[in-house]
Design a protein around this nucleic acid. Structure first.
Ligand SMILES: [Mn+2]
Ligand SMILES: [Mn+2]
Ligand SMILES: [Zn+2]
Ligand SMILES: [Zn+2]
Lengths: 140, 140
DNA sequence: ACTAATTTTGTAATGATTACAACTTAAAAC
DNA sequence: GTTTTAAGTTGTAATCATTACAAAATTAGT
């Protein structure tokens, strides 16, 4: 489905700016924060304002085509809300990976009468690469 | 185990301020943010500084007797790091409950060669009380 | 007491987010 | 196709949690 159709399908008028922010989230294999999105698109949209990036991301999350990912930083990152997944964040290099898993508990049974809208799982530790670097340093 | 012994056992010198912040985390059935802790103890420690609350909580999390809980606010909350558990946050009243469950996936198998230090699970939605209120309003 | 280390404090800086009013562009009405 | 209205975008200023940092106070060791 083309990008403008995705936006329309969620009740978002596909302006140029919105299309490009959506495209960036879709293409970049990252979990960008507001500033990264702003920097990345500034060259192609010279008049872009950071406020617009904020506005657009708020709209996207409200309309459920994106979601805010809260990690161990004090800034929000954003992710297309396609398939639910967990995140791993390395406490050394700060890299963030998707982890293809979600709790499969029967939440409705654990918390009856509660309406569950979202589940977010954040795993933190040291990534493979950083562990290898550490090991190399020790043996030198 | 008395509070000062808990602190000592984790390599923290049990100053009065630290004891009281620890005691507050232990007693209050909440997930307080820095300001709540500061306000609560101000009457008993008139000279208390918010910086000290920050310092102490950093120390506590570093020494693993407390942990920062990041919810859908833009401020940290704190919890004694006793037993691992998930959190439910109501998007209406902002209340936070403990949920006695954790993912039991074999993370080491899912992410081999990664060192996993922490797993945090945040469930968000509408709590029982808020749902009841909604239902009552509809039928009026 | 004297000295050094630790703890606490107050104030200023940082940095992400929000508020808001002006401006610009697009759509609707005429 | 002007005119009017709404929607989208922008820039600046305010907010607020957190951090930086140096001075002051307290504690521990001699
Ligand atoms: Mn992701
Ligand atoms: Mn808890
Ligand atoms: Zn790493
Ligand atoms: Zn509620």
């Amino acid at each position: 489905m083309p990008n403008d159709a995705v936006l329309k399908a969620h009740g978002i008028k596909p302006s140029l700016t919105r299309m490009m922010i959506f495209e960036y989230l879709k293409t970049a294999q990252k979990h960008p924060n507001v500033d990264e999105i702003y920097q990345a698109l500034q060259s192609r949209i010279p008049t872009l304002s950071k406020t617009t990036v904020y506005n657009t991301l708020h709209l996207f999350t409200e309309k459920s085509i994106a979601r805010a990912v809260m990690l161990k930083d004090q800034e929000n990152r954003y992710d297309l809300a396609a398939h639910p997944h967990a995140h791993f964040q390395c406490l050394h290099c700060n890299e963030v990976f998707d982890v293809a898993m979600m709790p499969d508990f029967d939440l409705n049974q654990l918390m009856p009468n509660h309406e569950i809208q979202d589940v977010s799982v954040l795993i933190s530790g040291v990534c493979e690469t950083c562990k290898a670097k550490e090991a190399a340093q020790k043996s030198s």
